[in-house]
Amino acid sequence: MGRPLLEVRGISKRFRGLRAVTDVSLSVEAGHIVALIGPNGAGKTTTFNMIAGVYRPDEGEILLDGQPLQGRRPDEICMAGVGRTFQLVKPFAGLSVLDNVVIGALRRHADVATARKKSLAILERLGIGEKSEQQASSLTLPDRKRLEVARALATEPRILLLDEVMAGLRPTETDRMVAIFKDINRETGLTILLIEHVMRAVMALSREIHVLHHGELIASGAPDEVVRHPAVLDCYLGEEAV
């Protein structure tokens, strides 16, 4: 086995004395889908933001294919091959759905016509192709989540960070989204690290799960092991969730 695509080594982040994330280490193998779960406020999004360059970790390193990412700007990290979605969606509200995605695609294809073609294909894939000419502000929340994914996919990342993209979806929609990610992962080998509360999606998608609680990693492993882990049951899942 080679070195993992993404390697997080002992990162910590404090906000004015509040320890948001403490000494978290995890790695994601190329081609894998890995989930990061935990109760609200556990530090999942902070971890994401450190990987994506929004925050600089106080300690620790983040390596993408062996290259350090910590301390670099978000745009540089995107260029290095990390795509991300935002938990609180951030569409370019005044632009059309298609243009939103085109902006992502332009990162790889400087030519607007090519970027448009690629973007349309991605929108079709996510099932919002027929809405491509609508203004992004007119989309419903589930569609905005899809748009977030489409935009991040358009940058053709090596690893995709998904921050609660299933939240607010109906079970059938969740299943469709899960199927889409599985397909993309199988066809292109895209590596995915996802934060998710919807256990139905987590269990169906991930090969490995990491559990955060109060900013610390309390369990890591295969899905069926992790959900039986006593510490995890204790703090987060509760018996009814299994």
Binding site: V54, P74, D75, C78, M79, D99
Partner: peptide, 17 residues
Amino acid sequence: YYWLAIRENPEAAEALG
């Protein structure tokens, strides 16, 4: 396109490279 992205949402623009 990049200008419009920055106008609409700088944070999202930055995340797109």
